[in-house]
């Protein structure tokens, strides 16, 4: 039997076996039997060493062609079987595995956003150690031009702890404490809790968050206060937000103003603000002849209520997870 005949015999054996390959296992067996290192093709090639150079060349050509053909077929079959295997049937409408997501409190988010804007305007956040929630009457009222028995104390019903100690009714004492500690120029912002004697209802709470900004420098103008607030409003409520200023009264600013933003056809108060009262500057040892400043405050809950369309302030302290999850 010539070597070529042997090759052809192997070829017909291969063809017969190939016809029976129908899964990954039989494919692998086929591969090992014929194409593996100890497979039949390799066995045959080993016999070539006895051949004349011419015969060896011819036999080599034929068997290599055969080998390449089946190597290709095996690879193709393999790919085909793999893609067949991965087909499993899924229902895309089964409720999937649940990702467990938490959330920050909406007030934290609003505070964070507002701080980003204000900080972007060059304000430095203060209040780590100079912003106690329990405050002396002196810092909360007296230094801010609100002596005892002043009727403007009615504007902020106060929780008292002793005659001289109280829950701060505003973040403004941080102005006083900052100015006592540091020399102007100053450009600072503080966010914190304030407390007023108000029972809970849809629009009132005994405690809420306030943000307070203060800028003291040479030649600070009311026009700059307006410019700063306008920028804040645009950042918070968008480019098209309408803003206006109206006269108001705070014992620690003069002139005092209210910054209002239009929602629908209603103007809502967003800021209380004004130029720092000269007496307040004197109280903290800053000369009003040399320095001037502006201050503004805003209620965080109010901004959050407008931003998210919340109609009841109690939701913030009730902490129903179905509320917290939405925002």
């Amino acid at each position: 039997m010539s070597i070529l005949d042997e090759i052809y015999a192997l070829q017909s054996e291969i063809e017969k076996d190939w016809a029976l390959v129908d899964n990954a296992e039989s494919l692998e067996n086929f591969r090992i039997k014929f194409l593996g290192k100890k497979g039949k093709i390799q066995d045959l090639i080993r016999k070539f060493s006895h051949l004349s150079p011419d015969d060896r060349k011819e036999a080599g050509r034929v068997i290599n062609e055969l080998k390449r053909k089946y190597e290709e077929l095996v690879q193709r079959k393999k790919d085909e079987l793999v893609s067949l295997e991965s087909v499993e049937i899924y229902d895309l409408h089964i409720t999937p595995r649940q990702l467990e997501l938490g959330n920050l409190h909406p007030l934290s988010k609003v505070i964070d956003e507002l701080l980003d804007v204000v900080v972007g305007l060059g304000f430095e956040e203060v209040g780590l150690d100079q912003a106690p929630d329990v405050e002396w009457d002196y810092y909360n009222f007296e230094c801010l031009n609100i002596p005892p028995f002043h009727p403007s104390r009615d504007m902020q019903a106060t929780f008292f702890i002793t005659e001289k100690m109280l829950m701060r009714t505003q973040t403004s004492p941080v102005q006083v404490r900052t100015m006592l500690q540091r020399k102007p120029p100053l450009r600072v912002v503080h966010v914190g809790r304030v407390y007023r004697v108000d029972a809970f209802d849809a629009t009132h709470a005994p405690c809420f968050f306030q943000m307070e900004g203060l800028y003291v420098d040479k030649n600070v103008s009311f026009a700059e206060l307006r410019g700063t607030l306008e920028m804040l409003v645009r950042e918070i409520f968008g480019e098209k937000a309408e803003f206006r200023m109206m006269p108001s009264y705070f014992p620690f600013t003069e002139p005092s103003a209210e910054g209002q933003v239009k929602f629908g056809d209603r103007w809502l108060e967003i800021f209380g603000c004004g130029m720092v009262h000269p007496q307040v500057l004197r109280n903290v040892g800053i000369s009003p002849e040399e320095w001037s400043g502006f201050a503004f405050g805003l209620g965080i809950e109010r901004i959050a209520m407008i931003k998210y369309g919340i109609d009841d302030i109690r939701l913030f302290s009730e902490n129903d997870l179905r509320f917290l999850r939405q925002l």
Partner: peptide
């Protein structure tokens, strides 16, 4: 009040920052 023209503050000498708490 509303006729006061807004002016941008010259905050060049201030760098704002948040507390890293």
């Amino acid at each position: 009040y509303d006729r006061i023209e807004a002016r941008t503050t010259t905050c060049g000498s201030f760098s704002g920052r948040k507390l890293k708490t």
